[in-house]
Amino acid sequence: MLDDFVTRAILAGLMVAVVAGPLGAFVVWRRMAYFGDTVSHSALLGVALGFLLGLNLNLMVTLICVMVAVLLVFLQRRQELASDTLLGILAHSALSLGMVTVAFVEGLRVDLMAYLFGDILAVTRGDLAAIAIGGLLALVLLVLLWRPLLAITVHEEIARVEGVPVLPVRLGLMLLIAVVIASAMQVVGVLLITALMIIPAATARRFARTPEGMGVLAAGFGVLAVLLGIWGSFSHDTPTGPSIVVAAMLVFVVLHFMPFSRRQRALPPE
């Protein structure tokens, strides 16, 4: 069954969506969309360095993403530059640095488009195994960190006074984001990873009454987007990564603006 490249593509997409959804909920709650973008833009640098040093690409991407994430948190804390300025500088520098480094690596002919926008149909059995391991690791970490992470998301200082170990939990979140980026890179590419995290989570908000519910629903909407996107990509011969994001966007638009009056909504729209 795994011989079929479509099956492999679907499996890879589903595994990534299941983790990206609930993690995306945190990205949305903590207003980290641009943070995620910046970190994922640095993934290409990880690819280039992995090639250069002859190391496992997924591992190298994860490592670079964690380093950039920690650097970002450190720089944001110093508050010398506004957050959006800092993110803007780092996001595009990291991406360009990655591309320049790729050009420097002799004999390396990478398909840049595949890294930027994903190449899910080229997923090999080995890639699938790597995504499965990364996904499982991320899922376990997310379950373990869920409660303390939620506590510091709602109010970091109360959580700290109540004894939540804030720094390890935040580092855990960075690691989670990095692992998911490394896995999702092949599915939607470094430019589109954040979309796979925040669009399903944003879609889920309207239907969720608890944080956990929103996480599970986000995973569901992510799965739906992956299936629709791969199907659309096949039937209309469109690039798969962007097709998945378009599918996610369509699901969001339809569900977000669809009027429904069956029961009172918990909250008025923002």
Binding site: V28, W29, R31, R147, L150, A151, T153, V154, H155, E157, I158, A159, V161, E162, G163, V164, A202, R205, A208, R209, T210, P211, G213, M214, A266, L267, E270
Partner: peptide
């Protein structure tokens, strides 16, 4: 053990959270 009540707190509507869930975030 300290119980802390900060000055004012605002929770973004994007986070679905009931009072019950809020009370049990830590304990």
């Amino acid at each position: 053990r300290i119980g802390y009540m900060p000055q004012r707190i605002q929770i973004d509507p994007i986070l679905p959270l009931s009072v019950r869930r809020f009370l049990t975030l830590r304990h």
